[in-house]
């Protein structure tokens, strides 16, 4: 443990590490199912895939549509590092490390701006 890392943050690093690994395996499993369904339905990776429609994800998964599994897996891939920042922010807040809480919030704010830019700029 470094001189600047408290026991609480030290423990949080282990938890965050395990969360990242777990989310990666879950996303690989979901995308693996999606790829098997793709090939079973004669879909080539070079075919044009459907865009993301969050409202249809549940129905696509229940209907064993490959796109549902693929998109859910892909969203979990993107969510994993964001979850890491949220957990780190909580650990730093419990540790009363205001600077790192502010850094964490700023990172999340940049990601929120990315969403806003993407949504407004894509129209």
């Amino acid at each position: 443990m470094s001189a600047t890392t408290s026991a609480r943050v030290f423990d949080a690093e282990r938890t965050i590490g395990r969360l990242l690994i777990a989310m990666t395996y879950v996303s690989v499993a979901l995308m693996g199912v999606g790829v098997v369904l793709m090939f079973a339905n004669g879909i080539s990776p070079l075919d044009a895939g459907p865009p993301l429609d969050p409202g249809d994800l549940g129905a696509e998964i229940l209907g064993l549509q490959p796109a549902g599994f693929l998109w859910l897996g892909l969203l979990i891939v993107i969510a994993a590092p964001i979850a890491r920042v949220v957990l780190a922010a909580i650990a730093y807040a419990r540790d009363r490390d205001r600077t790192m809480v502010l850094v964490s919030i700023a990172i999340l704010a940049v990601l929120a701006v990315a969403v806003a830019v993407a949504v407004t700029g894509g129209e």
């Binding site: 793709m38 990776p45 070079l46 895939g49 693929l70 964001i82 990601l111 990315a114 969403v115």
Partner: peptide, 21 residues
């Protein structure tokens, strides 16, 4: 990569059939 992937997903820049495999 997540910051830019969000922009790519929202703008239809990621094809899920080629990305997942």
């Amino acid at each position: 990569a997540a910051a830019s992937a969000i922009i790519y997903v929202a703008r239809g820049g990621i094809d899920v059939y080629s990305a997942a495999p």
